[in-house]
Design a protein around this nucleic acid. Sequence first.
DNA 1: TGCGATACCTATAAATTATAGGTATTATAC
DNA 2: GTATAATACCTATAATTTATAGGTATCGCA
Lengths: 124, 124
Amino acid sequence: MYRGSDEVIAQSNPSFMNGVPELLILRLLQAREMYGYELVQTIRAETGNVISLGEGVVYPALHALEKQRALKSRRKDVGGRTRVYYSVTASGAKRLTALSTQWARITGAVGTLMGEARHAAAAI
Amino acid sequence: MYRGSDEVIAQSNPSFMNGVPELLILRLLQAREMYGYELVQTIRAETGNVISLGEGVVYPALHALEKQRALKSRRKDVGGRTRVYYSVTASGAKRLTALSTQWARITGAVGTLMGEARHAAAAI
DNA sequence: TGCGATACCTATAAATTATAGGTATTATAC
DNA sequence: GTATAATACCTATAATTTATAGGTATCGCA
């Protein structure tokens, strides 16, 4: 829906989440294979609920990454329940590297403009 | 255009830019009043082209922020050209504080999950 | 037997950046 | 002197992506 260019930005609070779900999913799955529901909970737990991705975000992301061959999956039956475990392919690992670099570049550039106190002080 | 949930994510490379234009604009204008074209160039220059916002991003953002009373503007004629200088209002300053905090929270959480080496080592 | 947790899934809405234009003036290079 | 790049403003629409709100089914516990 188009509502005039003056209202295109800042309708609500930006979440700063562009690209973050994909980045985190690839990163966690590179450490070890996990299933969707587990990813949702792990991300919540390890960030102290700062980042809380719904299943409606995680499952479509997993499917898309698998379709692109960045992830591969296998089914596993555990206690009568079916889990779909995902792991990172070689292609996915390359993508993760690229996304990590891009993330570092953007956050670094924002940090510079924000006048962030350089933590390079650790070198002292 | 809707193309099926499997293609909703990761069509191209995420830019990690959600909310960043608004954050940078508010931050730069808090330091000193600037006009739109100047913001575009300053952001490019100070980030070494890592972040390059088009005028089509900056001007609508300025108009929206002014409409929300986060910014105020005044015209100024310089060498036959008209410039529109923007500065941050009290409300805009509060918004900047909130966005900065949110930015720090998100990047901190992502850093944790990415296994970032803690720069808290500076305390040693 | 009812309810919360586990585990999967999809469709659509909402929000925001990116792109591609368009106007006009000034300074510079040919 | 005239074409071109730079300055300075602007808008409309496309493209991208997250968020929300559902829906199904099984298991364990009260």
